[in-house]
C-alpha cells in the first residue's frame, strides 16, 4: 500500500519536473503567434495592411452604431468582427425561440406523424425502400443524430439491406435535420428572402429525393456487382 503511494508520489514529482515537460517546435510557434496576435504589433505596418487580419483587436471588431434613431435596432449598422457578430446573433434569438416553440406544439399535435403517413407510400416506388424506413427518414428531418441512430438500428436488425442503407444515408445526408436547421440557422437571413418562406424548404425536401434517386440509380448500375449477393 505504501509502495503504491510512493510510486504515485514519484510519478507526480516526475510530472512536475520542468525537465520532463515536452514542448516541441510547434508549441513555440504557437506561443510566438499568441504573443504577436495579442500584442497589437500587427496593425503597426501601414505598408502591409493585410497583417491586421492577425490582430486581436481588429478581429474583435466594433459594435454597430445606431445612426438613425427610430430606425436602427440595437444591432445598429456597421458592426464588425466578433462584436458585430455577437450582437447580430443575439438579435436572432427571439425568432429561433419562437420558431422552435411553434414546431414543438405542431409536432405535439401530430404534424410530423401526418408527414410520415404521406411519405410512406412514396418510399417504395421512388427509393425502393420499405415503408418501415419512414420513421427514420422523418426523424432525420428534425434531428440528424436521432435519424442516424434509427437507421443503424434498422440495419443491425437486418430489416434493410446494405443497398437500402446507402440510399437512406444519401437521403439523410443532403440537408440533414432539414426542418430544424432551416428554422434555427436559416432564420438569420429570412428577412432577405424574396420568395415565400416555405418555398426553399419544399424545394430542398424534393431535392432530398432527387439526390437519393440519383444514388439509387448509380448503385443499380455502376456498383451493380457489389449487391449481387443481396436479394
Amino acid at each position: 500500500m505504501k509502495e503504491e503511494k510512493d510510486a504515485k508520489q514519484q510519478e507526480t514529482i516526475q510530472e512536475l519536473n520542468p525537465e520532463q515537460w515536452k514542448a516541441g517546435p510547434k508549441a513555440f510557434i504557437a506561443l510566438i503567434v499568441a504573443v504577436l496576435f495579442f500584442s497589437g504589433l500587427m496593425v503597426k505596418f501601414p505598408d502591409m495592411k493585410w497583417l491586421a487580419a492577425f490582430d486581436f483587436t481588429t478581429l474583435v471588431g466594433n459594435f454597430g452604431v445606431i445612426k438613425n434613431v427610430g430606425k436602427d435596432t440595437f444591432v445598429g449598422s456597421g458592426g464588425l468582427g466578433a462584436r458585430g457578430g455577437f450582437m447580430f446573433a443575439l438579435s436572432l434569438v427571439p425568432s429561433v425561440m419562437f420558431a422552435i416553440g411553434c414546431i414543438e406544439v405542431l409536432d405535439h399535435y401530430g404534424a410530423i406523424r401526418a408527414a410520415q403517413r404521406l411519405l410512406t407510400p412514396l418510399l417504395k416506388p421512388l427509393l425502393g425502400l420499405p415503408g418501415l424506413t419512414g420513421l427514420a427518414l422523418i426523424t432525420d428531418l428534425q434531428s440528424t443524430d436521432a435519424g442516424a441512430a434509427l437507421t443503424k438500428e434498422l440495419y443491425d436488425n437486418k430489416l434493410i439491406s446494405k443497398k437500402e442503407l446507402t440510399v437512406m444515408g444519401s437521403w439523410q445526408y443532403s440537408g440533414a435535420g432539414l426542418i430544424n436547421n432551416y428554422f434555427m440557422i436559416g432564420s438569420a437571413v429570412f428577412s432577405y428572402l424574396t420568395v415565400p418562406l416555405l418555398l426553399p424548404l419544399i424545394l430542398m425536401f424534393v431535392f432530398k429525393f432527387i439526390g437519393a434517386i440519383y444514388v439509387r440509380i448509380i448503385l443499380n448500375t455502376v456498383y451493380k456487382e457489389d449487391f449481387k449477393n443481396e436479394q
Partner: peptide, 17 residues
C-alpha cells in the same frame, strides 16, 4: 411551447451565437 422555446434558446445561445 415553453419547452420548445427553451430548446430554441439553448440552441441559439450554444450553437448560433
Amino acid at each position: 411551447f415553453i419547452i420548445g422555446a427553451r430548446k430554441g434558446f439553448n440552441v441559439a445561445i450554444n450553437n448560433l451565437v
